[in-house]
Nucleic acid binder design. Structure first.
Lengths: 126, 126
DNA sequence: CCTCTATGTTGACGAACTTCGAAGCAAGAT
DNA sequence: ATCTTGCTTCGAAGTTCGTCAACATAGAGG
């Protein structure tokens, strides 16, 4: 359940991953990979899901705690979680009856640094 | 041409804008606003456009320099530029015959800080 | 005025996305 | 074994998106 087919921004990229986005024109291939991640973030439901998952003290959260926060069917939530997982933003594991999700901080860190300008040593939001 | 209808993440938000995304569950309204920006980034063509605009020494670039970099019709490029503009990521101005675009760093800074974890003082990508 | 070049806008069409209900699967309880 | 609960997958409906051709607009230069 954990293995995903999408490597998106793999650490094994040719030119040391990503030259910066705001400093060097992005290549087409990298643009395609990056776009998939941003697209995954481009939906209010998925943003809230990610936020709920990431902001848990314990580091993980059960699907059964996510679903009731939305006016959506369970299949729909499951679908959105799948997209976040395929984007490399989260991962999950089944433990007995329940499935737990957690954040993969490498990806959000990567995005943050890509969006950070050379001069601007971005600090966490207020 | 410069005025846009979308305030997205306005500085005049109620609770000081955005509580962090990775530290506090995102409210529905904020999620909707944020999603529009990420959705604008969720396309390879728009990512490359933004990258080309942002990485210009002069700080601005003419549409006539953007269009030939893509295998797309000029109206399509124009359409993507419009979406980036409505997302608050870029702005433009007509000077004589040509139209120039430039980055609005406030938005990318905002996104970077939203994706930055409390402990992690993100630095610009390599 | 008219023409030419550079961009933006409109309308249309196929592809992709969001959502749901129904069905499937996995694990615990009876 | 069977039932129940939690979650995912499947198939279909409605909506949104990316793209282009055609048309519209703005300014430069006759």
């Amino acid at each position: 359940m954990s293995k995903q087919e999408l490597a998106v921004l793999g650490q094994d990229d040719a030119n040391g991953c990503c030259p910066g986005l705001l400093t060097t024109p992005l290549g087409e291939e990298q643009a395609v990979k990056l776009a998939k991640v941003f697209k995954a973030l481009g939906d209010p439901v998925r943003l809230r899901l990610l936020s709920m998952i990431a902001s848990r003290e314990s580091g993980e959260i059960c699907v059964c705690d996510l679903t009731p926060a939305f006016d959506l069917s369970q299949p729909t939530i499951s679908h959105h979680l799948k997209l976040l997982r395929q984007a490399g933003l989260i991962d999950c594991e089944r433990r007995g009856t329940w499935v737990y999700y957690w954040l993969l901080p490498e990806m959000t860190d990567k995005l943050a640094s890509l969006l950070t300008r050379p001069g601007q040593p971005a600090e966490a939001a207020s």
